[in-house]
Amino acid sequence: MTPRPAFAELSEVAVLRDMQTDDGYLIPAGMEGTIVGIWAGGEAYEVEFDEPVADNATVRAGALRAA
């Protein structure tokens, strides 16, 4: 049986540590975003941020918490 991802698509999440977006912008720890993609059954997520810049980042599951 395949485990279910920790977060569903369109869930609101916050990053637990500083991250870089796919375009290289800094997203500081605690920033909130929306999950727009689920990779490898929930091992990583595509998260869309509106602040401090509008961009996406691929974030491993262990670096996220529910917002």
Results as ranks from 00 to 15, higher is better:
Y45A: 09
V59K: 00
A61H: 10
R17K: 14
A44M: 08
F7G: 04
M31T: 13
G42A: 07
V59C: 06
T2Q: 12
L10D: 11
V47L: 03
E43D: 15
G62R: 12
Y45P: 04
L10F: 15
R17N: 07
L10E: 14
G42F: 01
I35Y: 02
G33S: 06
A8E: 14
G30Q: 03
T21S: 02
G42Y: 01
P52T: 00
F49Y: 08
V47G: 01
P52I: 00
N56S: 11
G41W: 02
S11V: 06
R65F: 07
V36N: 09
A66V: 11
D22Y: 05
G41K: 04
G30E: 04
Y45D: 09
D23K: 12
I35A: 06
E43L: 14
T34V: 15
A57F: 01
E9A: 13
F7K: 03
G24H: 07
A44Y: 02
E46V: 13
P52M: 01
T34E: 14
G30A: 05
R17C: 10
G41Y: 04
R4N: 08
F7L: 07
R60I: 11
G62W: 08
E48Y: 10
E9Y: 08
T34L: 11
Y25H: 15
T2C: 06
P5M: 01
A14K: 12
L26V: 12
V59W: 00
V13E: 01
V15N: 01
E51T: 12
E51V: 10
E48S: 13
L64H: 01
G33D: 01
D22P: 03
G33M: 02
V15L: 05
A67K: 05
Y45R: 07
A67W: 04
D22W: 06
P28C: 03
E48W: 06
Q20E: 14
T58H: 07
R17E: 14
T2W: 09
D18Y: 04
E48I: 03
Y25F: 15
A14C: 15
R17V: 11
D55L: 05
A54H: 10
V36Q: 10
L26R: 06
A44K: 05
W39L: 15
A6N: 10
F7V: 07
P3Y: 07
A66W: 08
Y25I: 05
E12G: 05
V47C: 01
Q20G: 11
V59G: 04
V13F: 00
G30D: 04
A8V: 09
D55G: 09
D22N: 15
E51A: 14
V47D: 00
G42V: 06
I27T: 01
E51P: 02
A67N: 06
I27Q: 00
V53Q: 04
A44F: 03
V59N: 02
D50A: 14
W39P: 01
I27E: 00
D22A: 13
A61T: 11
A14M: 11
V47I: 09
F49I: 10
I35G: 05
R17L: 09
S11N: 14
G41C: 08
A61G: 03
P28N: 05
V15D: 01
G62C: 07
R60V: 14
L10C: 09
A57V: 03
E32V: 14
Y45G: 07
A14R: 12
P52E: 01
F49N: 02
G37S: 15
M31R: 12
G33P: 02
E32N: 08
L10I: 06
V47P: 00
D23T: 14
